[in-house]
Amino acid sequence: MMNVMTEVKKQRNFAYPSARGYGAAALLLTLLPFLLQNQLYYLDTLILALLWASAAGAWNLAGGYGGLLSLGHAAFFGIGAYTSSLLFVKLNVSPWLGMVAGAVLAGLMGWFIGMITLRMKGPFFGLATIAISEVLMITAVNWTELTQGSQGVNIPYKPGFVNMAFDSKIPYYFIALAICLVPYLLARWLKESKFGYELMAVRDNEAAAQALGIHTVRVKVVIIAVSSSITAMAGAFYAQYVTVIEPYHEFSFSVSIQMVLMAMIGGLGTASGPIFGSLVVTGLDTFLRDVFQGAQGGIQAMMYGSLLVLVVLFVPEGLIPWFTRRFRSGKGEK
């Protein structure tokens, strides 16, 4: 019994809240949309924050836990957005099924990319992922019969659960929350599973992992596929929520970097890092939008860029591990 108690105490920090902490968090997360019901602007911000937290969390599974620095995750985000939208617009398939289809397609794509890039080291993998997302962008722009090219796809507004379209923002909130929980829970599971330990070992030293009997190639391919699938789910939801998608945005480098940035700010290889990072970035974004009405586009992006540099230079481990270290003695979460 004593052991259990000390265990619980030990785990009491930002990254691993106690059981009571979970209860409070769950209650807050459930009540929050109703509290913000009349402040649609903030509810909208919150939904977008959750959405980006899902994408950043998905990136973090491969990038943070697996050390695979993908700079082209927009590829999977775009696949998710386009698959569900096109299935809905052209064949009237429910976006719920479209989301699954997008996740499967992106997973297969991720698996394939993993297979062809697995021998690459260092910057080569990152460059290859950029090239892949560019290839998809050019395809989406030029394959006009399918994608309507650079015009993008408009999703007709037909409210109803099957169509994943609602009058109120609250259902969107809960969908975003649910998607956001997928990478979060998976990340928690990684810390408690054989696969997770293998993944972190591959990240930290591939040769040493092989010497211990770890099939490093399989581990990497699996995590890229999983990460891609979840990113596609976020993309599919994004399309439904925003109702218009464009190749120059969905497949863009800045979308890829946004995921990396959020995961890095919160903490690479931490479960709650990407969520926290997304809240910070989206919050700052909203704040800047209020302050600089006109030229916000450039200012916001400059903030992203500066933030990225500052985090890399001053808090490379991210804010969650940094807080954890500051507020309790002993070692931080890794």
């Binding site: 700079l71 992006a301 990225l308």
Partner: peptide, 13 residues
């Protein structure tokens, strides 16, 4: 890599 990406974003904007 990430630092140069950050600087790039700042300069472009």
């Amino acid at each position: 890599i990430l630092a140069t990406i950050g600087i790039s974003i700042v300069i472009q904007n």
